[in-house]
Amino acid sequence: MRRIIRRRELVADDARYAGEESAPGTRMVQPVAQFIAALGAGQASGSAAAVLIGPADEVEVLAPHLARLNLIVVEFPKIGEGRGYSQARMLRQRYGYTGELRARGAIKRDQLFFLARCGFDSFDLDPAEDLQASLGSFNDFSVAYQDGSDAVVQVRRRAGAA
């Protein structure tokens, strides 16, 4: 059984992607282009949808449709890919997305602290990573200089700042 981290706990992966078989209790994640095309053709289902975005996808195209989504999966195809951090920050801050936001791909525990600060709340890590040990990495730092989505650290408040 494939497992992911969701809100700092190990749970069964409920997502299925193109080419994978769906099973009871799982949901299909559509590529963003397919989701947008279906909307345009009036074929969107009424229930909440799940989409997958790649590093080059613009989060702006999702902005008008966020109410229809309860899972956005952001792909990190290789080590060092960093666009997903900005995608997450924009979805959470600028567009006010409150559903589940998942980071998936070439991710090691060393990135979890930053990813959580940017607004990700579930994580589908590199299969070779030790998931149990990875949970500790959310606590790599107890302080930060920047505001973040993750409220568990002490942030340096700039005097006079809101």
């Binding site: 060092g80 890919e81 960093g82 951090y85 900005s86 920050r89 990135q111 602290f113 930053f114 990813l115 600060r117 940017c118 730092f141 930060a144 200089y145 920047q146 973040g148 340096r156």
Partner: peptide, 14 residues
């Protein structure tokens, strides 16, 4: 320096 240190969004730049 403080703003840039361990910046969550800008630690994996091109």
């Amino acid at each position: 320096r403080q703003w840039a240190a361990l910046h969550p969004e800008f630690s994996y730049l091109p």
